[in-house]
Design a protein around this nucleic acid. Structure first.
Lengths: 199, 199
DNA sequence: TTGTCAAGAACGATCGTTCTGTTTAGGGTC
DNA sequence: GACCCTAAACAGAACGATCGTTCTTGACAA
């Protein structure tokens, strides 16, 4: 006989997750203590451990949540109809990324934590599996864009769609990394620069 | 009256640093404990604190060492004579990165720790300053390549060299990030994909 | 009344750092 | 050149702080 409904429980879990995301955006995964998350969420230690087995499970849930959020939003844009040319689609996606960074309701926490998750994947195989799964979703979205471009003749008929999808995703990752570190980088100039690089 | 020479002291410092880099490549900055570094280096706690004031200083030294190593190697390649076309230079640089990843004498620790440092820059302003400084060195190297390309006509006369340098650096960062996460990405195909993306 | 859920004190483990004792290279004295 | 003396350098035990987690207690829905 559960005292709270499944909806309430899920809502509390989400509340806890978003509090944890704010902490991680400030302090990174391993400098964020359970005490930080507890304070930020306004819950108690006992409550937190009722929703997550421990810190590892919380970290994995944060990584999955943030990367899922990011890939979901970007995949929709990349695969939208009518299909855009690849670099046009890239600019739209980077614009959305820029929007998430600056005017997001959470002040750019999602992309910030995503970078933390990529680094964490380098030392935690379970996080690495999550990251790979989310990257594959992004690749799939780009593949549909690229296939459309190939069919419309905007791309060579023998173009390697799989590799091109990886190139586009890595371009997003590189843009985000450098955008977070420097201030002088914006999507329009970035994509224009990519177009210029033809030799 | 120092008991050991400046050379010995510097050598010991380097020994300590490289031991710490191995630890960080395995465990990340904040999961690496001083006890790990002490064990890996074969020194004692007292000795370590004779070379670094504390963990924060060690972390900053690691970040600076690794990023300096990386930018130094890549900047030399990017700025070599005779000047290569931008994308040709990029392929050479990515090849070198691939080499550092696979056959490096340290088994790819340098690029791996570099990714950790980029993430750490998101929460430690002092590390962020180090990262920005090293990125600027990379940008400078690319600018010389791009100016040459512009002079030789391979690039438009009004090309924005500064932005293009940022694009190329971010491409390197994105390649490295995704290369560490996936296995299906190699420099030749990557650059070929970039060339294909013209629309 | 019963079992679920939350609150918060409490606990053992582990962290970064310091402190104490020991070793050892170099300089002064004869 | 043999000797001590001094202080730098190191080793490793020890310390306080802080971590993740658990346990005890109480409140509340069924």
């Amino acid at each position: 006989m559960p005292r709270i409904s499944a909806e309430t429980r899920e809502a509390r879990r989400q509340h806890l997750l978003s509090a944890a995301v704010r902490c991680v955006a400030r302090e990174g995964f391993h400098q964020t203590t359970m005490a930080h998350v507890i304070a930020e969420s306004g819950m108690s230690a006992g409550a937190v451990y009722g929703y997550f087995k421990g810190k590892h499970e919380l970290i994995r849930a944060i990584a999955d949540s943030v990367l899922g959020d990011l890939t979901g939003r970007l995949a929709v844009l990349a695969a939208r109809e009518p299909a855009l040319a690849p670099l046009d689609a890239l600019e739209v996606v980077l614009d959305r990324l820029e929007e998430l960074l600056t005017a997001g309701d959470d002040g750019g926490n999602v992309p910030r934590v995503a970078v933390q998750a990529w680094a964490e994947a380098g030392r935690d195989p379970q996080v690495a599996a999550i990251v790979r799964e989310r990257l594959e979703q992004l690749h799939a979205a780009w593949r549909t864009v690229l296939v459309h471009a190939r069919e419309s003749g905007a791309l060579a008929a023998d173009a390697d769609v799989e590799t091109l999808a990886q190139v586009l995703v890595s371009t997003m990752m590189g843009f985000l990394q450098q955008r977070l570190l420097l201030d002088g980088l914006r999507p329009p100039g970035y994509v224009a620069g990519l177009r210029e690089l033809r030799c």
